[in-house]
Amino acid sequence: MNTFIRFLKNWTLPIGMTCGVMGFMAFHYIPQLSPIKPEAQQTAEFLMPTVLFVMLLSTFCKVNPHDMRLTRWHVWLILFQMLSCLAIAMFLHFLPSFSHALHAEGLMICLVCPTAGAAAVITGKLGGSETSLTTYTILSNLAAAIIIPLVFPMVEKHTETSFLCQFLTILRRVFPLLIFPLLIAWGLRVFFPKAHAAVVRHTGGLAFYLWGFGLTLSVGQTCRYLVDSPVSTHLKWLLSLVSLVACAMQFFIGKTVGAAYGERIGGGQGLGQKNTIFAIWVSYTYLSPVLSVAPGTYIIWQNLFNSWQLWRKEKQSGKKPKRQ
């Protein structure tokens, strides 16, 4: 039994991804499951935000609001997120006939996409600061809400609504599941300290396993996006390659900048682990449904890398000599 639990602990993310792919394939290729396919999709769409809310609540209960503060690595990575998006948008604005415009737009979406709320979970598992990463996650989402309505009309001019309307629309999309659990966690800490202590004491690694289950749901949805997309196979592969480059680049830059301030893990997860479901929505809303392939495959690359990081950490921990 202990061996099974240890295996599950070490391979939660790969198992979650595999289950997501297998679940999608079952509903896609087995005709007998077709009658319950709509209900299964509705259930997944309901469970995804619910699981994320509970996961973030248990994580944020461990975050002391007095320890949340802006640091230099936050500023540098936010600047990279915003300026890289602006640079690509300006390039496409002045060169609208660029032959690889779609690929550039896919890269732009992967770069401007804010940090996933669950990034704090992986950061804590890897030994980084969940508090510092939580601060950065809020800043990253706010930066995306500002830069997207400002910059994306330079690329696609069909958006007629005002900046304020677009800004509020994005905030409504990303902030409820990020801010509400944070406020509830802080409320428990201040007004119900015993309940707060019980949550911290009994949840333990719950957030990580909830993230594994949530990954099953999100990978299944991603597979559906990819298969239903009317994009040619050649373009899908190219956009997948773009997202792979973006993923590798952002983890590298994030870790490099973070290491300069003693936050290598937080920097890497903050810049590299993205809210890809939000990025898919941005693709459909502001640019083109075709581009959803880039953030759709990004979730695969980032979680393959996360799985490798967790495996390496577990392996290194197992090599440490036991204390006498």
Rank of each mutant, 00 (worst) to 15 (best):
S84P: 06
A279K: 14
Q269K: 13
L291I: 05
L215S: 04
S97R: 14
L217F: 06
D67L: 11
W301Y: 11
A26M: 04
C61M: 11
H66I: 08
G187D: 11
Q316L: 15
S129G: 04
T222K: 04
N303P: 07
L168R: 03
P230K: 08
G204F: 02
T159V: 15
S288Y: 01
W76G: 05
M48N: 11
M1H: 10
V290N: 15
S307T: 07
F180Y: 13
N2Y: 09
L107M: 14
T203K: 03
L244C: 08
G20C: 05
K236V: 01
Q316R: 12
L79R: 09
I179G: 10
W281F: 14
M108D: 10
L244M: 10
G268R: 07
L126T: 01
M108S: 08
T297D: 04
K62S: 07
A248S: 15
L239G: 07
Q41N: 12
P193I: 01
T285K: 15
W73M: 14
A40W: 00
R224P: 01
P114R: 00
Y136I: 02
I170T: 07
A185P: 03
G127F: 01
H158W: 12
M68V: 08
A248G: 15
M108C: 08
R323S: 11
A248T: 06
I30W: 00
L95P: 01
Q324W: 10
F305K: 03
I15Y: 09
L210C: 03
H66G: 13
Q273D: 02
T276I: 13
C85S: 07
P295T: 11
L33N: 00
F251Y: 13
F53N: 09
L291T: 04
C165V: 13
L139D: 02
L70S: 08
K9R: 15
Y225T: 14
H196D: 10
V63D: 11
I147P: 04
H196M: 07
K274F: 09
I146E: 10
S132T: 06
R312V: 11
S132Y: 03
L182P: 01
G272I: 09
V121R: 08
I78H: 03
M55W: 04
N275M: 01
T137E: 08
H93L: 08
M55E: 12
L142D: 03
F213H: 02
S229Q: 06
F278K: 04
Y298M: 14
L210W: 06
T161I: 10
D67Y: 05
F7E: 09
L178W: 01
L177W: 12
I88E: 10
G204E: 08
L33W: 00
G128T: 03
S218V: 15
E130P: 02
F163W: 10
G205M: 12
I147A: 15
G106W: 05
P193R: 05
L8H: 02
S229K: 05
T161V: 09
V21L: 12
P153E: 12
T71N: 04
M154Y: 12
S243D: 06
C165Q: 14
L164V: 12
F27D: 00
R173C: 11
P149I: 06
T276C: 12
T43Q: 05
N306I: 11
Y136K: 13
D228G: 08
L92Q: 06
L241V: 05
A104W: 14
F4W: 13
H103R: 11
L239T: 08
L177F: 13
G23A: 02
G254M: 03
Y261T: 00
Y261C: 01
A89T: 02
E160F: 00
Q273V: 09
P230S: 07
R323H: 03
T256H: 09
